[in-house]
Design a protein around this nucleic acid. Structure first.
Lengths: 226, 226
DNA sequence: ACCGATCTGGCAGTTTGCTGCCATGAGCAC
DNA sequence: GTGCTCATGGCAGCAAACTGCCAGATCGGT
């Protein structure tokens, strides 16, 4: 194995700067396996936040695999839901994540390295036998993992008020019209919209629509066991 | 059959005024069978538009069954998609709709009557044998019908630009942030958002999020034949 | 090269959405 | 009865979103 095909990056910023272009260039497959949303995954988050992330192209498979630690708290779950609603497939593995990694287009693997002086390291490998091994491990774990929708606790049922609000929003009405239809003042309607968005964990109305759609779908067709 | 259990309503306004409360009170099941989105269904639309429609409660089944005529033009399809995205199950029957009707809570059937002097009539029936018959017919046709997502022509694939826009919106960013991430001006970003919304057929960002979620879902898991 | 179509970006005016503030009323417990 | 909590509605200030307009840049065809 040629050593010039292995690079070690120190810290998230170096990851972003030296591997971010790989993220952007990804066209077939972008896989992430991480224990939770914070540690290894923080490197991916940092890159994404700076716009270094795959274009959403037809044919690109984007999958994220986490351990149950990712469901540890409500905010993490809300984040996972937001990620899922934006079109990324998410599964949760019952066991630990044996190898935290990012696999890009079947050609590059970025592995979690040992922290050096408290700084995360990332090992970038392009040796086919390593990449294939990591990818196979991902696939095997993926196949036994459970879709997020099937293993996360269902969100608390919406109140009737929230549902009426959801319905008015779903119809594409302005707030003024929605308020009138529900027979409340504009201020009250907007207060309820804000409450619904907080419940959904959304920071924009578009995102709220994405999340709400998942919710509606779960009610019409409750999740079946995998 | 007692005649006082049959009422004939003339025109949509009378439907709204004298049967609208039944729509609102519906708690278990609200079924509509119509040939297309315009003729018989126009009465339901009018009631809904005036706020006379079922509350969105858990346990309420809302289903709409149409013939293929409902897919006749792109705008009808866009409307169907909006309806579906708001949580109503929609199926398309290959055959004609034998009996255009609304069935409410298994107790009331509203049937399409013959037009009188060009005015739609609606026959409201609460005789159990009639209601059961209409409902059975609905169910039988529903079982052989195809889910909207499975029979409508898939929407044209989004351009890469539209996808990037979708992704920024999905992340819940403000327009300013979205524009920066995509490397375009705010004006251009907003122009693209407006284009995406036109493509989706949405009149608000929330609604666009609902519709976009269906789109994303169709790409990750393409429709299987029923 | 020129020309036309299209896209971009800056700016401005407008509409819609967001939220704090405050007064009021309703409901509930004591 | 009183006091507290919570929800509502009106208002105001602000942010975010919407879109027209116009000038300039870009692209493709001849």
């Amino acid at each position: 194995m040629s050593t010039d095909r292995i690079i070690t990056l120190h810290g998230e910023q170096e990851l972003v700067q030296r591997a971010g272009h790989l993220f952007v260039a990804s066209r077939e497959e972008f896989l992430v396996a991480a224990t939770d949303l914070m540690t290894f995954s923080a490197g991916v988050n940092a890159a994404f936040r700076e716009g270094k992330r795959p274009h959403v192209v037809p044919g690109l498979t984007m999958r994220k695999l986490y351990s149950r630690r990712a469901l540890a708290d409500p905010e993490s779950l809300r984040r996972l839901r937001r990620i899922a609603a934006s079109g990324i497939e998410i599964r949760i593995s019952d066991g630990p994540i044996a190898r935290e990694a990012i696999v890009i287009d079947r050609r590059t693997a970025i592995l979690a390295g040992a922290p050096v002086r408290g700084v995360h390291t990332y090992t970038v490998v392009q040796a086919p036998e390593v990449v294939d091994g990591v990818r196979s491990l991902f696939r095997a774990t993926w196949e036994t993992a459970t879709a997020l929708a099937d293993c996360a606790a269902p969100p608390p049922p919406l109140t009737e008020q929230a549902r009426d609000t959801l319905r008015a929003l779903s119809a594409g009405h302005t707030d003024e019209t929605g308020a009138r239809l529900l027979g409340v003042s504009l201020r009250t309607y907007r207060r309820r919209v804000a409450d619904l968005m907080a419940t959904l964990g959304a920071s924009s109305r578009f995102q709220a629509g994405l999340l709400a759609r998942d919710l509606l779908r779960e009610e019409v067709t409750p999740a079946a066991p995998r």
